[in-house]
């Protein structure tokens, strides 16, 4: 039963990963591409990890560490990417409000 559930969860996670890859492919500029890739892929990987835990419960500790690691690194690298992308080319905003400008980077 749990195995079945694990497979389903992994399948959903893989679907999210596919969606994020699709977003990376289809979105127009860097920031929106990151919007697609980071959130969806974090969720996807976490779902895959959860599915793996359901599939083989004896690996729960290592897989938990893996999930924690993903949670720590993925948003961090996304934020760094966003910063450097902003510093290089700014971002598009229709009402010309640039809140980041006031911060000293």
């Amino acid at each position: 039963m749990f195995e079945r559930l694990g497979l389903v969860l992994m399948g959903i996670g893989a679907l999210f990963l596919l969606l994020s890859a699709l977003g990376l492919w289809r979105m127009p500029d860097t920031l929106s591409r990151m919007h697609a890739s980071t959130k969806a892929s974090t969720l996807g990987i976490l779902l895959v990890v959860l599915g793996a835990v359901c599939h083989t419960p004896e690996l729960w500790f290592k897989l938990g560490l893996l999930g924690l690691f993903v949670l720590l690194t993925n948003p961090l690298s996304a934020s760094i990417l966003g910063h450097s992308s902003y510093r290089k080319e700014g971002f598009y905003s229709p009402d010309h409000i640039d809140a980041l400008k006031e911060e000293s980077l």
Binding site: F69, L72, T73, L76, S79, I80, H83
Partner: peptide, 15 residues
């Protein structure tokens, strides 16, 4: 000098 990166590095280094 990215504060976020520095904190992240501090957390991740021992791990």
């Amino acid at each position: 000098h990215d504060t976020l990166l520095q904190i992240g590095a501090q957390v991740l280094f021992p791990l």
